[in-house]
């Protein structure tokens, strides 16, 4: 039988897969760069967040879980900035 922790992990990982799949579909199908960027940053923020939270619960030591969450924080910062920079560039290019 599974422990409650493992069940929560499975639930989080499955939701992460759903977010990744939906985000990838949106990345391929949405019409313009800004919409696709929206999908991409959602994958980074929410998808990776769910993945990190799920994996953090089943780490042998708590410090490893903390490291995963630290990586997620870094990804939040960098994906926010990357999204802003790419959008900025798109607007700049369309005005030329």
């Amino acid at each position: 039988m599974f422990s409650p922790g493992e069940l929560i992990t499975a639930l989080l990982l499955l939701s992460a897969i759903v977010v990744f799949a939906a985000g990838t579909l949106a990345l391929l199908r949405l019409p313009d760069p800004l919409c696709r960027l929206h999908a991409l940053t959602k994958i980074d923020n929410l998808g990776f967040g769910l993945l990190a939270a799920g994996l953090a619960l089943i780490q042998p030591t708590w410090i490893d879980g903390l490291k995963l969450l630290a990586i997620w924080t870094l990804i939040l910062c960098s994906s926010t900035t990357n999204g802003y920079l790419i959008a900025h560039h798109c607007v700049w290019e369309s005005r030329r």
Binding site: C77, S78, T81, Y84, L85, W92
Partner: peptide, 17 residues
């Protein structure tokens, strides 16, 4: 030269790391 304020903030976080 057109990176903007948000990028500067990220650089300030990333550089020490």
């Amino acid at each position: 030269r057109h990176a903007g304020a948000l990028a500067d903030t990220l650089i300030r976080i990333l550089l020490p790391l």
